[in-house]
């Protein structure tokens, strides 16, 4: 570790390239904290958006017209507005309307910037996931669902045991795409001061005046994260493959 730090210190002294995070303990700690925050943010957003997508696709097939129209409105709203505006809107408008508690002299909202980032990004990607899941559900032949109902399955049971497993396989590539997009979109949480990688990099380069170096680190960091996600999704696709089908 010391050798590693010495190398970058040497690099700075000889060439002027200042990768301060690799030899300064304080900046290193900031960097590591940002990694964890980013990963937590991504995982929370991914999970929340997939749940929203499932629920949304389910609601789109609901009998109640109000629920169906509500879903259509939700999708239009989140698809037709920029995600950055959504994050700011949730944090500054909706956040102001939610309850807060007295945190020793000032009011602290129960949901902080991290929470609002997860909520707004989750709903944003969830709108797309809803459409992706719907396309998968529609690809499951009506006759297969009929076979399930003729075996006594309720609508919910046939969704859980037949429709979703098949639909999921159909829409995995599209889901894969959308989740990669979501991963990258989490950088917008920067706008409401979630201390994730984008925000932290900005702080570091403000303190150390090393914008190009931190930009390179940022790029490599996200390249690595996306590679891990894509690798995982591909493995999942492979594992879900059905012999003799599709």
């Amino acid at each position: 570790m010391e050798l590693f730090g010495d190398f970058f210190k040497q690099l700075y002294d000889t060439t002027g390239w200042n990768f301060v995070i690799f030899y300064d303990q304080v900046e290193w700690d900031r960097f590591i904290a940002a990694i964890w925050t980013t990963i937590r943010l991504i995982i929370a957003c991914l999970i929340f958006s997939v749940i929203v997508g499932f629920a949304g696709a389910w609601a789109q097939g609901a009998k109640s017209r109000i629920i169906r129209y509500g879903m259509a409105g939700y999708i239009q709203f989140f698809r037709n507005t920029p995600p950055f505006v959504q994050i700011l809107f949730f944090y500054f408008v909706v956040g102001n309307l939610t309850p807060s508690y007295d945190a020793g002299g000032y009011q602290q909202a129960y949901i902080g910037s991290f929470g609002w980032a997860v909520i707004s990004l989750g709903f944003f990607a969830g709108a797309f996931n809803t459409e992706i899941f719907r396309s998968g559900i529609e690809a499951v032949p009506e006759s297969t669902v009929e076979a399930a109902s003729s075996l006594g399955y309720t609508r919910l049971q046939s969704y859980i045991y037949v429709v979703f497993p098949l639909a999921f396989r159909v829409c995995l590539p599209a889901l894969n795409n959308n989740l990669v997009n979501l991963l990258k979109t989490t950088t917008l949480a920067y706008g409401i001061a979630v201390p994730e990688m984008m925000y932290t990099a900005n702080q570091i380069w403000s303190d150390n005046v090393n914008v190009p170096e931190m930009m390179i680190v940022l790029f490599l960091f996200y390249v690595g994260l996306v590679a891990v996600l894509v690798w995982g999704m591909h493995r999942w696709e492979k594992a879900m493959k059905i012999p003799g089908y599709g």
Binding site: P141, S143, T144, E146, A147, V162, L166, R169, I242, Y245
Partner: peptide
């Protein structure tokens, strides 16, 4: 007619 088995 089309069997309609669960392919998965």
């Amino acid at each position: 007619q089309q069997y309609n088995l669960f392919p998965h």
